[in-house]
Every structure is written in structure tokens, then in C-alpha cells.
Amino acid sequence: MTTDAYFAELTEALRAAGVPEEQIGRTTDELRGHLAETGTSPEEEFGPAARLAEGLGGLAPAPGEPDGAAEHWTWTADLFNDRRMLAVHGDQGWEVESLDALGRFVCRRAPGVALAWEYRREVIKGGRRTRVLDELEPEGWEPCGEWLVYGYFKRPKAATDGPAGARPSVPATPGKWLFLSRRGKALLGAWFVVVSLAYFALGLPGYAVVFIALGSAVTAALTAKLETDRGRVEATRGK
């Protein structure tokens, strides 16, 4: 990214955060002056423009300070539904801070004008991590959690949408925390039947546990393989 493109992105993101034009001009002049002295590139010195804009727009809490005014919400979805629900909730200003040990999305939403977020999921195991990070970080994507073979990445929509990336009014925190797709529900139902049959037919809970573990491993491996294959095909097409 050129220095001008970086500052254009930063300007848009600051506008989206409601920073006055005059202050934006002052800030970008100051940062350009800083670069003239360090001789570094803007990304190297300031990080992704969208993230810097958060710090300069007053939306990010001060490091180490309590973040009492922000809303917090934890939820989850199955692998067929997670990307769709991330898009919906990201659009409502929810920022994923991490994935907890159960694979749930731990989110916060800034008070005042919330930023909308976009997300993507990538397979990062099997030696793909470095390549995926190298491809996504220059575009402003930041890792926000990992689950099984997947890495989740976030980016404020202001990075691509400009002022349209801000949400002055957002819906209340959802009461639900579990978002299953139809396929997820069907699989869960089928799985419950198989486990019940195994339990009653074999009579030993140990067998049921083996079935559950085996089935989960096969499902995860199959899904990961499909995703990896698709990634390979897309990478080959891109060449």
C-alpha cells in the first residue's frame, strides 16, 4: 500500500468514527511528519490504518483502563452458520475479542457510535498460518481467535466502507447465545439418534463415548479437508 493510500484509508476511518475534518487534517499532517523523520512505511510505523483510527478516534478504551461502558456478549454457532452470524452481528457493531475454550465468540461493543465489523474464517493449520497471515494482514485483517483448524479474522468496515462503516444506532444485545443452522440442527439430531442407539444397543456408556469422539474427529477432519481443498483450488486459480 502506498503512503497516500494508507492516509486515504485512515482519513475515511476517522471520518467514520466521527472525528471532525479539521482534526483529521491535523492528525494526518502530524503522522506524515513523523514518517518523514523515521523513514519507515506507514504500516510498519502505525500498523493497520483502521486500528490506528480506533485509537485516534476515541473509540478504543485506554490500555489497562476499565471498559465499563462497553457492552459484552458471548455467543456461538455451528460451522455451517458461524460466518453468516458473524456478518450479522459484526454489522450490529459487535467486535470479537477472542474465542474462549468452548469455541464461543467473546464480543464487546463500544459505547456511542459503534464500528461495524467484518469477519472471515480461514484454515490456518497444516503450515498455512504464515501464508494466510501474510496475505490478510496487509489488507487490515487482524486475528481474533482460533478454533480447531480455523483462524478467525476481523476488520472494521470503516476500512472498506468509509463513513458507512459506523453504526450510530444499533439493536439491543441479543438474548440468544446459540445460533444453529438447519444443517447443524439436522446433524445434531442424527447424531443424538446414533448415540442413543449405540447406548441402548451396546448397553455400555463407554461405546457411546467412543462413537461421539470418533464421529466428532471424522466430521472435523472432513470439514477441514473440504476447506483446505477449496483453499488450494482458489490459490491455484489466483496464480
Binding site: E30, H34, T38, F46, G47, R51, L52, G55, G58
Partner: peptide, 22 residues
């Protein structure tokens, strides 16, 4: 790095702890 320093300066200015002149 500038990405750490300028948000701090911005916050200090907003809080009235420093003032700035270009």
C-alpha cells in the same frame, strides 16, 4: 512505534493534560 504513541498523545490531549500546536 507511532501506532502506540499517537493514540496516547491524542488521549492526553482529549483529557486536557497536554495542549498542542502545529
Amino acid at each position: 512505534k507511532g501506532g502506540t504513541l499517537y493514540p496516547v498523545l491524542n488521549r492526553l490531549e482529549q483529557a486536557g493534560l497536554v495542549e498542542a500546536e502545529f
